[in-house]
Design a protein around this nucleic acid. Structure first.
Lengths: 195, 195
DNA sequence: GATGACATGTAATTCGTTACATGATTCC
DNA sequence: GGAATCATGTAACGAATTACATGTCATC
């Protein structure tokens, strides 16, 4: 999936400059692109070259020209085609699960410390997410299908982290219970056979 | 996170060639790297250069030399340090949620068709995942903390897709109910003001 | 006077993928 | 004879990130 369509999507709601688009990408967690200059400005050039957007240049004497991009009918068609196109499965790059794959080289205490650290990160992320959603719900009072869809999308995102938090918690609980029963001893001794 | 640590992790269980490692990456969904030659062979060279693995070359007359890599004590230390290192939050690149952000340009019927298509993809992915897990559980009968962790990791992965499926289903149900009540009319007419 | 927002762009680097290239062996 | 697996590597390309580079204007 290309960032170009997301840009087209924003322009379908209102004309914007590269700088304005950059900000929209920067703070929305669902829009996973970093939204760096290079990407945005290049994408806008390409969209313009492909005839999907129009460019209005506001010239100023001292400052650089301000380039306002607007979507055109061809752009709307391209946007519609993309939205209807076959969806791709989400890509979950879960580095922590990779890390945990070799968690058996740690002692039970070390493992619990690691899980605790991760749980805290997830908790904080959830708080930031909720804050962002509230801020945005306040300033963005769209109605109709757009607003409904947006709410469901945010819910999905939050549910992911909620599930993550519950999972880590259950891991820690199990680990604690097992350690009390002596079932999962500190594995460092077991696995210290080097070579 | 670097693929180098995952390679180090595999080598901590058994020595392996680049080709063997490549296969391990290829079919494990949690190990999100594509596991292409370029990445693996380069990583192995670097690990060797950094003194974390040793290389045993088996020379053959006609075929290319077979290079078997083994982890060494420095490598085990590096692996342990990495496993204990501060976890990063998962990166969820959910293209479909991006797509849905502009789902309001579709009619209710088109939107439902899109959701149905996605639901099917998620369903199939779940089946493949379960199949993979069963195949692997059968062939890989490790015990102790490693096996326990592995089972929890697979559960987490499956839970993600289960949650995804439930979410799509709830979306479709809501959409259906709303459409019956005329609350979410075909939005194409509403939004067709071009420019 | 400094910071930060506004505004545009380029350069360097890293990362990852696909495809290229070679050649033996094994199974159907 | 052809396909698949084993086994190593390189080249070309594309995507994405960070940092560089410049300059205005408003606010503290």
């Amino acid at each position: 999936m290309s960032i170009k369509f997301a840009i087209l999507g924003f322009l379908s709601r209102a004309p914007a400059t590269g700088y304005e688009l950059k900000k929209q990408f920067a703070d929305d967690p669902v829009l996973y692109w970093s939204g760096n200059n290079n990407q945005i400005y290049r994408a806008l050039l390409e969209l313009h070259r492909d005839g999907l957007v129009t460019q209005d240049v506001e010239l100023h004497e001292d400052s650089p020209p301000r380039k306002v991009y607007s979507i055109n009918p061809a752009g709307r068609d391209a946007l519609r085609d993309w939205v209807r196109s076959t969806p791709e499965l989400p890509q979950l790059r879960h580095g922590f699960l990779v890390q945990l794959t070799w968690g058996d080289v740690l002692t039970a205490d070390e493992l619990d410390a690691l899980l605790a650290e991760y749980a805290e990160e997830v908790r904080v992320e959830q708080l930031m997410l909720r804050e962002w959603d509230e801020r945005n719900a306040a300033r963005n009072h769209r109605t109709g299908p757009g607003a409904w869809l947006n709410a469901r999308i945010r819910e999905r995102w939050q549910a992911f982290y909620a599930q993550e938090e519950a999972w880590v918690q259950s891991l820690r609980d199990e680990l604690k219970t097992a350690a009390a029963g002596g079932e999962y001893p500190a594995s460092k001794e077991e696995n210290d056979g080097r070579g």
